[in-house]
């Protein structure tokens, strides 16, 4: 049905201005060429096109001569009993392959025990990700790098170590979580924190402290706050003590299995 309607539409479109002498029913009974089986003549032509015509010329003769020569050589080598007559070619291929020297092998062996050095320190990277806003990591890296440079200038120590030490000192060991019992009062349970969680809370306090500083440059504020936190002057220590106190109060609810 579908093909019929298309057909009809196409005929009507083509003959809009010409008044057809045929009645409507006759139009539908017309058979077009496309539906007819292909003729044998056309088919043979296509087949001929696909096949490459064999030319008889000088080039052909030369190629045949080459092939004959190769065949002859191969037969001669086999008859003479020469082993690996194609190895010369293979050697050439082999010479291009990289072969490490003894020195390099020794170095490789010595480096096997050592781990591949990390590009960035994971703790610094964690802090960078916390500083980052809107996915602008390079900006966050710049802030952290500058803050750590200020730490280096002031304390004359490795700032990454200083940061790690500070986060370790400042990070709370426990935290309280509230569980809904649905029966009576809620349960407040102290939960231990892993290293990453501890560092996260400590660095958040450092960021909070840095907001209260005077400079309009974030890296200066952060650098100064890290120095103060390292020297034990941050307000984060009070928060840490308070959290610990709360955890101690609710120590009865700690589940020990």
């Amino acid at each position: 049905m579908f093909s019929r309607t298309i057909l009809r539409n196409s005929i009507i479109k083509s003959q809009t201005q010409v008044i057809t002498p045929f009645p409507r029913a006759y139009l539908f009974s017309i058979r077009f060429n496309s539906t007819l089986p292909p003729s044998n003549q056309n088919n043979s032509k296509i087949q001929k096109k696909d096949e490459l015509p064999i030319k008889e010329g000088e080039e052909e003769e030369e190629a045949q001569a080459w092939l004959d020569a190769v065949k002859e050589l191969r037969e001669r080598y086999i008859s003479q009993g020469i082993p690996d007559y194609e190895s010369a070619h293979m050697k050439q291929l082999k010479s291009e392959v990289f072969e490490p020297s003894e020195e390099q092998l020794a170095k490789y062996a010595s480096l096997q025990d050592k781990p591949i050095p990390l590009r960035n320190d994971p703790v610094v990277q964690h802090c960078t990700n916390m500083v980052m806003k809107d996915g602008k990591k390079s900006k966050a890296q710049k802030y952290i790098a500058r803050a750590l440079y200020i730490v280096r200038l002031k304390l004359r120590q490795d700032p990454v170590n200083v940061l790690k030490e500070t986060l370790d000192k400042l990070g709370p060991l426990m935290e309280t979580k509230t569980y809904k019992t649905r029966v009576a009062k809620n349960l407040v349970v102290p939960v231990p924190l892993n290293q990453r969680q501890r560092y996260r809370r400590a660095f958040l306090w450092i960021l909070e402290g840095s907001d209260k500083r005077r400079s309009k440059d974030f890296s200066v504020r952060l650098g100064e706050e890290i120095i103060d936190a390292y020297l034990g002057r941050s307000s984060g220590y009070d928060k840490r003590a308070q959290i610990h106190k709360q955890a101690m109060l609710h120590r009865a609810y700690v589940k020990l299995r």
Partner: peptide, 25 residues
């Protein structure tokens, strides 16, 4: 919002003007 503690300078000025060179190597 009282901001009293710390330097008021930007990074370049902070490292340039504070007496860091005296403690330098």
């Amino acid at each position: 919002n009282r901001k009293t503690a710390g330097s008021f300078r930007f990074f370049e000025d902070h490292i340039h003007y504070t007496k860091n060179r005296e403690e330098g190597t």
